[in-house]
Simulated scan of single mutants.
Amino acid sequence: MFSGNYNYTRDGSNQALNRLAAYMIAAGAQVRVYSPTTDTPAFVPAGDLVSAPSVAIPGRGEYRLALGLTRALRADLQRFQPTAIHLSAPDLLGAQAGRWGRKQGLPVVASLHTRFETYLSYYGLDWLRPSAERYLDSFYRGCDRVLAPNAPIADLLREQGLGERVRIWGRGVDRERFSPARRDTAWRRSLGIADHEIVVAFLGRLVMEKGLDVLSETMIRLRGLPIRPLIIGEGPARAFLEAKLPEAIFTGHLDGETLGRAVSSADILFNPSQTEAFGNASLEGMAAGLAVLCPRAPSTSALISGGEDGVLIEGADAKAYAGAIQGLVAEPMRRLRLGRAARISSARYDWSTICGSVLDVYRELGAAPEQRARSAA
């Protein structure tokens, strides 16, 4: 497996990859992961992790860019003798690993985790998008299978010419960690939240491509209402949000039970990001029984039936978001009804079943014994 960030920061992509690796190991596979690393990893990884030479990305020092498939990494691959190659990032390391796998006659599978081409708009680089899209098209055309996170993105990839190569690998959610039962009124009060206040939570990395400009503008429009913004996460754009929203509560990075408690203790989850390939944070809010508010995009449309188990808004319209939140505040029964329906919908996303679908793809390509796939089901 080749990753751009397997465990040195925590995000939805590497959490899914680690879940998959752990599932594969439990099914009897040997998993070796090649990724940039740091001296301060965010968590213990699943599988054998081999450090790939890398440099910090200018302006985003928390992320690293692999320098490619070096001679040492090629020698390590030869010793390991893989039966399949899994690429999770379309970077230089992933591209060269894919070419190596094809030369060895191995099946090459790529999983799509992030819509990287959409990031360019947030950094004034729209003019690069056509080149980026051509590169991504070439990268995925070089793979035997491409794993899309949901049906809308799978359809988009098929329309772009990938056809029968496309399969779906969704994401799961821990419905015990994120649950209405985790709601903690005492914890809310300890943060200075009054019982009558509605907590609007944002969950994710604090980076501009997560729609933080829309988040801040929306919350500013809602000042004067009994609303408290709760910002769960950490990242380089924290100072931007702190300056815009001094009334907000910032928890920093949370994990495990503390993360589940924080999300489940909110009332509304607001995820304005339009760059998500799946929407892990939205699904976690749904499992926690929150009314979830998102932009209408392929990822969110696959998760949420607008008006039934969440609210979808067209585009990046802060005025429309503010109006939707104001409506949810004014109609507590509707808010609760959406949250209950979201909790029910989240039951479709079981990690074991979802990871088993990837094992089926490996089996389809002849990289995993059929009996192993059956025993892991």
Rank of each mutant, 00 (worst) to 15 (best):
L112N: 00
D309I: 10
S54E: 04
E62T: 08
G323I: 03
R175Q: 12
E257A: 15
A243Q: 14
I198G: 04
G124P: 02
R60C: 02
E159Y: 02
I354H: 12
G124H: 12
L191G: 04
Y6E: 07
F202H: 13
L92V: 11
V166G: 00
A26V: 13
P369K: 15
W169E: 02
R71H: 10
P107E: 02
D91Y: 10
R141S: 14
E176F: 09
A277K: 06
A22T: 12
C355G: 10
L120Y: 10
Y63L: 13
I168E: 13
R74H: 03
L293D: 01
N18S: 07
R177W: 05
K319H: 14
A277H: 08
A52S: 07
E247V: 03
G47W: 07
N280P: 07
G252H: 05
Q96N: 01
D91P: 04
V109K: 08
E62W: 03
D39F: 07
L230V: 05
P295G: 08
N7E: 01
S54R: 03
A248H: 04
N7K: 02
A27L: 13
I231R: 01
T218C: 02
A368F: 11
T118V: 00
A97Y: 01
W100Y: 14
S190G: 13
I268N: 03
R19I: 01
F250E: 06
G323E: 09
G163R: 10
G289I: 06
A27S: 15
K319R: 12
L338D: 14
K319S: 15
E197A: 04
S282P: 06
A347P: 02
L67G: 08
Y8Q: 09
V263T: 13
V109S: 08
A46Y: 01
R134K: 12
A288D: 12
T258S: 15
T353G: 11
S299F: 10
P180A: 14
T275R: 05
G315K: 05
A322Y: 05
F80Q: 14
R221D: 06
P36D: 13
L215T: 04
L293M: 11
P82G: 02
A266E: 11
L93M: 02
Y8H: 15
L106K: 05
E176W: 07
G306V: 03
R337C: 06
I198T: 15
D91E: 07
I193N: 04
T114V: 00
A377H: 11
L162R: 13
G307K: 11
L312Q: 13
V33R: 13
C143I: 14
G94A: 05
I57V: 15
